[in-house]
Design a protein around this nucleic acid. Structure first.
Lengths: 228, 228
DNA sequence: TGGATAGTTCAACTATAATCGAAATATGGA
DNA sequence: TCCATATTTCGATTATAGTTGAACTATCCA
């Protein structure tokens, strides 16, 4: 047989190290300019431009032109999802430099996975919410308990609005570094952006790594009984 | 940043057309010998051997040696799952020959997706079960109704045993050709293998395409109100 | 208007990886 | 023991794809 939708074509877009780096850089769910991405992938702008046009043609990435900048972004949540699923079957890379290893540690500690929290922080926060009886873990979704309903309300989240969104409400997402599950979906996203708003966590520049602020240390302990 | 588990390495295994063909051939969930796979990918045995050893090293495929044959198989259900998710974001391939187009039609009509039914038949059968009130469609899982419990019991399936399996019981799987959902998981697998046992469907040689037998035509109409 | 910055296109070079013939190895059966 | 079959290893060839310098376009700002 030779019938085969072009897996190879899509895969070859991910198979080139520079492109893979660009894509994983975009996993933070934010826009990035061409030069930013070139810098992150450690390649010249021409090369990045070459790769980015391939990624756009292949529908993995979208562009928006604003003035002289081009803002690149992952084309869809599906693409992010496939990338994350790739990470779960990939082995961790060999460490080549001290800088790289400290970056790896930062990523393992806490990072955004497209639009929600992952890494040790993501997993620990999810576990806390389960232990405190706010969430119950299911096969593919977390269930919000009645205690949870009250808690999230007090915490400042409008669950009813979140449930209206077309995407999954409280997806279970597999974490490549922790090999555990964490909370994704509309609820995962809402909690994460709320933590940014409250300034309990903040982004590291040029990375999807996240750090916990001093305020965050205190408040996460108080609200989620969490000490990292 | 340059922290990145090797997405590229795994992806490059899928990015080569011959290897992609080998992998999609293995999507039927069965064992295949090296020469069979060489034939299916339309390459010489040496070349297939070269690719297969790469796939084994990359943990996408496993081998078992029996006498002078080597039996190759997808390494895990996860790998099959990732391949299928690739198909959903890939565009269908251009048709290059009459033979290929008739094979494409056969695949679109009915095929196995690792261990359960997909294609028009898979989608239609799933829809029938929903329409007859045996299943209710959820976000990530189908739910078996009380009518469904009775029906599957009568049909010869022991649901209690299926639920004990570690994997998902009734997963929703996205169909690349129909762009619809069909039933996967332990229940999807059990129904499919039961249909093979009953000889309502049979496999086409050297392909994951499936045909409905004459008996199957009649019985699928009777049991599932299905006419294809 | 002109200089600085963001990004792309082009052409040439280079490196890598798929392919296949030839030969080697392993197994089964007569 | 000898031959056929299944598969792998080796070496040479070929094709393709990433990289970069140089030149070009577009936009911003003074």
């Amino acid at each position: 047989m030779s019938v085969n939708p072009n897996v190879a074509e899509v895969a070859s877009l991910l198979s080139e190290p520079s492109r893979a780096m660009i894509l994983t850089s975009l996993m933070d769910g934010r826009f990035h300019t061409a030069s930013e991405l070139a810098y992150m992938a450690a390649i010249k702008p021409q090369t990045a431009s070459f790769h980015l046009s391939k990624l756009v043609k292949g529908n993995l990435v979208t562009v928006e032109k604003h003035g002289r900048y081009r803002y690149y972004q992952l084309a869809s949540r599906e693409v992010a999802c496939i990338l994350e699923s790739f990470l779960t079957i990939s082995k961790p890379p060999e460490v080549r430099s001290l800088k790289q290893s400290s970056q790896t540690i930062a990523l393992r500690n806490a990072r955004t996975c497209y639009d929600h929290l992952a890494g040790r922080l993501g997993v620990a926060l999810t576990e806390s919410m389960v232990n405190l009886g706010y969430l119950r873990k299911g096969e593919k979704e977390f269930e919000v308990t009645s205690n949870g309903e009250r808690f999230f309300q007090d915490f400042g989240l409008e669950l009813a609005d979140l449930r209206k969104e077309r995407r999954s409400f409280s997806r279970v997402c597999l974490d490549w570094s922790e090999r555990h599950h964490h909370l994704a979906g509309a609820l995962g996203q809402a909690i994460t952006s709320h933590l940014f708003e409250l300034n309990w966590i903040s982004r590291k520049p040029l990375s999807r790594a996240v750090t916990i602020t001093d305020k965050g240390q205190k408040e996460l302990k108080r609200y989620f009984n969490l000490s990292i």
